[in-house]
Simulated scan of single mutants.
Amino acid sequence: MDLQEYIELVFTDYTLRTITLGTAILGAICGMLGSFAVLRKQSLLGDAISHAALPGIAIAFLVLGTKNSAAFLLGALVSGLIGTFWIRGITRKTHLKSDTALGLILSLFFGFGMLLLTYIQKQPNANQAGLESYLFGQAATLLESDVWLMIIVTGISLVILLLFWKELKLLLFDPEYTKTLGFNTKFLDILITTFIVVAIVLGLQTVGVVLMSAMLLAPAAAARQWTNNLAIMVILAAIFGASSGVLGTAISASHNNLSTGPVIVLVAGAFVLISFVFSPGRGLLFREIRFRKNRNDLQLHKTLSFMYDIASTHEDISHPHAIKILNNFQGFTRKSLQKLEDKNYIKVHGNMWSMTASGFHTAANLYNQLVKAEEDE
């Protein structure tokens, strides 16, 4: 199907419209809240919480004995919050670091969840569970009520971010200073962590336990490459996340036997890859361009300084010198000589060169700066 047919189908087909809108909203809220997880260096938090939610889903089914999406989400939320507070308790009351605590909780809860799933599979009503959709994600099961729930949570998250923006920003970059100003850092920490848990729980049905952490972190990681401003990063992460949801759904719907969740994660990964390569500030491509430019500038400065040493020994700075005296100089190349002539720093006549007044003045400034830097060291 072409693009026009797909757009028409989005507005006419209930299932596709629901999935597209749901994945877009999920991507936006994950990108928005994931920015805080990335900046707080809690990248594994999403992985730990998503895995910690699995026992809650299994226990909810065992209690009810039937599939109930609302109960599953509630069980996942409770289980995820318990796992989160256990992580906080381990890092605060023991000598273990956060990465160790995250790994422990992830393994413990996921192992317990898989044990419960194995037990459920042996029950007579196991076919009613549909818990495999929470393990690997199944966007096709999204209902309009799920989308409305995502919209409400996203709206509440936006309101909370706006209300506590200054405090959360201070907490990110200087927790100790935030505490000295009288703000309750523990409350702020719990607040943002709780909303991250809620966002992860909302995405389990779409992306699944295994891939949910990527949905939380990838848009934020991509946005971080483009800006140093927190507000712009949050907005960009939300855009990248929403775009990943829409494009992933479109690709999945246009091809047979493609699961929506994994495709969404792959699209988000593509945003990260593009950002890592092409972002002007931190991108690998522009970093290489700047490196080559700086190296070339250094070559020019070294060559010009060497010429300055030669020219400064003569009363007439425009006195011609043979190019061959530069041949053994490490910074000299014919290309650098041409660039210096283009900048009107030197004049080249056949196999002879001479320094212009502009070149001599520029080289003198470079020489003085170098001497000053050596004196400061």
Rank of each mutant, 00 (worst) to 15 (best):
E8T: 06
L9Q: 15
V10G: 08
F11K: 04
T12V: 12
R17F: 15
R17M: 14
G27N: 00
G27P: 00
G34Y: 04
D47A: 01
S50K: 06
H51N: 11
A52V: 10
A52M: 12
G56D: 12
I57K: 08
L62P: 01
T66E: 14
L74N: 06
V78H: 01
R88L: 13
G89H: 04
I90D: 12
R92P: 06
L96F: 15
K97H: 14
S98E: 14
L115N: 01
L131M: 11
E132K: 08
L135R: 05
T141W: 13
T141C: 10
E144N: 10
S145T: 15
D146H: 15
V147S: 09
I151D: 14
L162P: 03
K166E: 09
L168N: 09
G182Q: 07
F183K: 07
L188S: 09
L191P: 07
I192H: 13
V197F: 07
I200T: 03
V201R: 05
L202I: 09
V207Y: 05
V209C: 11
P219T: 00
R224F: 07
W226T: 00
T227S: 14
L230N: 07
L230H: 03
G248M: 00
I251F: 14
A253F: 15
L258H: 02
S259V: 02
P262N: 00
L266M: 12
V267R: 04
V267P: 05
A268S: 03
G269H: 00
S279K: 01
R282E: 08
G283C: 11
E288Q: 14
R292Q: 15
T303N: 03
M307H: 03
Y308N: 03
D316I: 07
S318A: 07
P320S: 10
P320F: 12
A322Q: 13
T333W: 09
S336W: 06
K343Y: 12
V348Q: 09
M355T: 01
A363C: 07
A373E: 12
E377D: 05
